[in-house]
Amino acid sequence: MTKVLIYTTTVCPYCNAAKNLFKSLNVEYEEINLDSDSDLRAKLSAENNGWRTVPMIFIDGKFIGGFDDANKLHKEGKLLNLLGKN
């Protein structure tokens, strides 16, 4: 089964949009809130080419970007393939 991991913060409309996208596709995901873990957020940024915004979305351990990136993949018909749903 494909694992989706979404790093979020509480007041982030893009985080909510990302979660809603995966819910609409009936894809389960794990959410990790970064509000109180600035060290983890800094580590994730350093490991992913300096990416600093949330959400940070990973599919099977591979960083795909944020909501705009996931939504673009979905509109191009590529997200379902990454999720093993096609």
Rank of each mutant, 00 (worst) to 15 (best):
K72R: 14
G66Q: 10
N26P: 00
M56T: 02
V27I: 06
I64V: 14
D60H: 11
D68Q: 15
N26H: 09
K72L: 12
I57Y: 07
N71P: 01
R41Y: 05
L73A: 14
A46F: 04
N48D: 07
K3E: 11
V27M: 05
K78A: 11
N71R: 15
I57F: 05
G61L: 12
S45E: 06
L5G: 00
G65P: 06
E47A: 11
Y29L: 04
K3H: 08
S24W: 00
L5T: 10
K23G: 00
D69A: 12
D35H: 00
L21W: 04
Y29T: 02
T53L: 04
G61W: 10
G77V: 10
L82I: 07
L21F: 01
G66A: 13
F58S: 04
G77L: 06
D68M: 14
K72W: 12
N33K: 10
V4P: 02
L80K: 15
A17P: 01
P13Q: 04
A17R: 14
V27P: 01
L80T: 10
V4K: 01
I59S: 03
A42T: 08
K75D: 09
N20T: 10
R52Q: 11
G84D: 03
D60E: 12
L34E: 03
V54Y: 10
V54F: 09
D39E: 12
T8N: 01
S24C: 00
F67R: 10
H74T: 03
N86G: 15
I32V: 14
I57L: 10
Y14K: 11
M1K: 09
G65W: 12
L5C: 01
L83W: 05
G50A: 07
D60N: 15
I59V: 13
Y7N: 07
L73H: 07
L83A: 05
K85S: 07
E30S: 08
E47H: 10
E30D: 13
N86T: 15
G77I: 07
D39V: 11
A17M: 13
L79R: 04
F67A: 04
L82M: 13
A18H: 03
N26A: 08
R41W: 08
G66H: 08
E31G: 00
